[in-house]
């Protein structure tokens, strides 16, 4: 167990370093000139930081949500948060309004994500309790609605705007710049801290509300706090990196398989490995088909899904024998 954890941390650190120096031109860290220093600091570093941020927020959100909803198939987008964010950001990209300059898309996405969380939260509430089944159904319903509206807008719009919107939806980190990173770290960091602080409540909720109560927890309070933490992390991740697939759904399963299901281990390791996988995916995405770029969200799924299937074949996961 311990060996796996250490290996994971080393692998992610190595990937991060490699990602900083690899790209259109390989930058030799030991002979930096002015230009390569500038590229490193103002292009590569913000992009790598954004990948780390988005990946860790998504990995942790997935791990929390699978527990809160007691459903191993849940991912951060199952509550419709991504559809709300995509609708707002997509509409902004297509209509081409940039009233806030480069911050327009992330801010629109964040607004859409928060609005969706609020609506899903209200719909999921009944008699003072946040019910997992209601949350899930409300999220699914709202997600379909928002996706349909976005598709409607897309089918009526110009080719350029649609392509930009599509790229964004696939998970695109090419727009990363320094201006948003501090806010990103603040918001996603608060969500992560909140989730880790409520790790015991998360473990207890997985055993059902009655057992959680019997263990001395207030199930509805724990669920509300964890829902808030997921909303923060997912909204931040989407507004910075678009809708990156795979990380939120499968990273928690891979971590459980390698290191165990206790939230004490699961949450930090989902954050670390989510960050790692996205950094690797983004490095691949911006180097293999140079001068063009592949969205990181596509790579995560293309590389990650087969690995997941391999693990599935090797040992029981998802509770299947």
């Amino acid at each position: 167990m311990k060996k796996n954890i250490v290996l994971m941390i080393i692998a992610v650190s190595a990937a991060t370093l490699f990602s900083l120096f690899a790209g259109r031109n390989f930058i030799n860290p030991f002979s930096l000139d002015d230009i390569s220093g500038k590229i490193l600091f103002s292009v590569r570093l913000p992009r790598v930081l954004t990948s780390l941020l988005v990946g860790s927020a998504l990995g942790t959100s997935g791990a929390v949500l699978q527990g809160v909803l007691r459903n191993p198939l849940a991912d951060p987008y199952i509550l419709g948060i991504s559809s709300g964010a995509a609708l707002f950001a997509g509409a902004g990209l297509i209509i081409g309004s940039a009233f806030l300059g480069p911050l327009t898309v992330p801010l629109l996405a964040f607004a859409g994500a928060c609005l969706t969380c609020a609506i899903v939260g209200v719909l999921g509430y009944r008699r003072g309790i946040l019910l997992p089944e209601r949350l899930l159904l409300a999220g699914l319903g709202l997600g379909f609605l928002f996706t349909a509206i976005l598709m409607l807008i897309m089918s009526l719009s110009s080719a350029y705007g649609t392509r930009r919107a599509l790229l964004w939806i696939f998970g695109d980190l090419s727009m990363s710049d320094w201006s948003l990173i501090p806010y990103g770290f603040l918001l996603a960091g608060s969500g992560l801290t909140l989730a880790i602080a409520r790790r015991k409540g998360l473990n207890a909720l997985i055993l059902g509300d009655e057992v959680a109560f019997s263990l001395g927890f207030s199930p509805s309070r724990e669920r509300l706090l964890l829902f808030a933490s997921v909303s923060l992390m997912t909204a931040t991740a989407i507004s910075l990196g678009g809708v990156v697939g795979f990380v939120g759904l499968l990273i928690p399963h891979i971590v459980r398989f390698l290191a165990g299901s206790d939230a004490k281990v699961l949450l930090p390791l989902s954050a670390i490995s989510g960050a790692g996988i996205l950094v690797i995916a983004d490095t691949v995405g911006r180097t293999v088909v140079f001068p063009s770029e592949l969205p990181a969200g596509v790579i995560t799924s293309i590389v990650g899904a087969p690995y997941f299937l391999y693990l599935l074949r090797k040992k029981s996961m998802l509770g299947m024998r």
Binding site: Q66, G67, R70, N71, P72, N203, I206, L207, G208, E210, V211, F213, S214, L215, R256, S261, D262, S316, M317, L318, G319
Partner: peptide, 13 residues
């Protein structure tokens, strides 16, 4: 402590 009749655990603790 109380244990219900059925406890579904679908996370591999």
């Amino acid at each position: 402590s109380y244990l219900p009749q059925l406890i579904d655990v679908n996370i591999p603790f």
